[in-house]
Amino acid sequence: MKTLLILITGFISNSSFAAYSEFNKQECVRSDLNAIQSLFTRYNDYASMPGSSYSIDVAGVSFPMVKMTKSQSKAISATESLVWIVLQPTNLTDGNLYPKFLLNCKIDRNENQNYFSQKCQMVQDKPHFGLQDMKIEVYSNRNSKNCSPKESNLYISVKITTNSSEVLKIKTKVLEPAGPLASVVANLFDESTFFQAYFDYLYTEWFKTL
């Protein structure tokens, strides 16, 4: 009985709330598979690529939401890399509160079947903050019945699980200097859409370059 109580108490104290969100995008793009592969595997350049800084305009005011400040990679093989991503929410200068995570990305390219795919999964046993899990799947092919012969079909799926208590810490710090606007700015930080909106914007901008 005592053991059971200890187990239950331990479970409750260790469990944290999480919010899940996902989105998909599919478009026919003019670029060929080489260009698509090149874009998605420029891991070290992610932070300087289009879409890395996300702002929203509301009632004539531009509000800087989040930007990617670091994207570093280490190749494990020709098709597998580890990618370290750090984001800076709006005006935060406390690096401990930056969303950060390590992705394991694998690509698959088959010239004969004319497709390219990339699968990235967050590495759980390395430091991460803000996110509990993340999974990105990219798939592109030529000769799709959905697109013209000169286009590539490009599909991306992003699944995000945020860590609610860590997002709350970020949100609290972000709102600190807002003073009378804190309650207004708080409207922007809907947990399920904060990261989702950022990555949705990021990939929308990438798609535009293809």
Binding site: Q72, K74, V86, T90, T93, G95, D125, L181, V185
Partner: peptide, 28 residues
């Protein structure tokens, strides 16, 4: 607009761990 500009002026990012530091850490 003034409050926004004052409160949410973009600031330079803080120094954070590099990938090598992260890979050298065994667990979270």
């Amino acid at each position: 607009v003034k409050v926004f500009n004052n409160s949410f002026k973009p600031k330079p990012p803080a120094a954070t761990d590099d990938i090598e530091d992260i890979l050298n850490m065994k667990t979270e």
